[in-house]
Write a protein that binds this DNA or RNA. Structure first.
Ligand code: MN
Ligand code: MN
Ligand code: ZN
Ligand code: ZN
Lengths: 150, 150
DNA sequence: ATGCGAATTAGACACAGTCCAATTGCTGGA
DNA sequence: TCCAGCAATTGGACTGTGTCTAATTCGCAT
């Protein structure tokens, strides 16, 4: 049996470990994320799993991504107001985001130290600490006319 | 002339200082944000400026908020995948976000120290560093059925 | 009063994401 | 092998946020 790092059979085991019934569609979606190990939007994943012959619907892609997030297999990254990115890396880490190109990359958490964050109100727990370094090329922006400019 | 902190005439001056022609609608939108000094969504602002008699269109609210952001009068906060929050506070500061209630509050930057962020690739400049402390009540979630759960 | 550029507007549109009822697929038992 | 039952998938309608556009209105200078 093929046991390469992100073979279908191996992925099926990972899904089971997270309490997810490994169907064909779910394995393909997991493979899109884990084989590349990149931040992908739902739309990109839909395109990837359907290249060649279509085999997974949009509804299933969204269902599955939400299920994966809920089960802790992947996480969401909220950096772009127009779409969510899905992140196969669930280790604590931070992000650098190019606001021009939309490129999103990881920052290793080990080197980063954050101090002085406030105590949480009682009865509250931390879901996570997001750090996003928003960057852009220093080159002057290709000016686009903006309606409503004074 | 009324010169209270967020009077219309005072706000008009602030707009002019940012190169923005102070129209009635723009002043009302600025007032919604600066009088409360809270994080508001476009929808909330639209409702606020139109309570009582309607006087500002949805298009104008979006036009104006984008203009304000572009001119550095306010800034966007991206924490919720479904909508942008607009922040009248342009001082460097961070955010605490309750993922259950959607409540968004400021964290003073003075007390927080972040070290070890990577050097930027050459030719890149920082647009900003966002830190979002995602929290929720420790009480068990009111369980909502999730379609597609295994 | 008139003219003119800027601002505003209604409504169409784009598009991410959700919802739903109907269908398909899988599995375990007769 | 057939069937029942349940889980998963599906197309397509729907929602909500945000953008776009062409037409109108506004504010102001003459
Ligand atoms: Mn296939
Ligand atoms: Mn009014
Ligand atoms: Zn990441
Ligand atoms: Zn803030």
């Amino acid at each position: 049996m093929d046991m390469t790092r992100h073979s279908r059979s191996n992925l099926a085991g990972v899904l089971r470990q997270h309490g997810i019934n490994p169907t064909h569609q779910r394995i393909e979606i997991a493979r899109a994320l884990f084989a590349r190990f990149e931040h992908l939007s739902a739309d990109q994943i839909l395109a990837l799993v359907n290249e060649g012959h279509p085999e997974t619907s949009r509804a299933t892609v969204y269902n599955t991504l939400n299920l994966f997030v809920q089960r802790g297999l992947i996480r969401e990254v909220i950096v772009d107001p127009s779409k969510v990115f899905y992140d196969p890396n669930t280790q604590p880490h931070y992000h650098i985001y190019d606001v021009r190109t939309g490129r999103l990359a990881d920052i290793d958490a080990d080197s980063v130290r954050v101090t002085g964050l406030p105590d949480l109100p009682p009865g509250m727990v931390t879901e996570g600490v997001d750090i996003i370094l928003r960057v852009r090329s220093a080159a002057p922006e290709s000016e686009a006319a903006v309606q409503g400019a004074a």
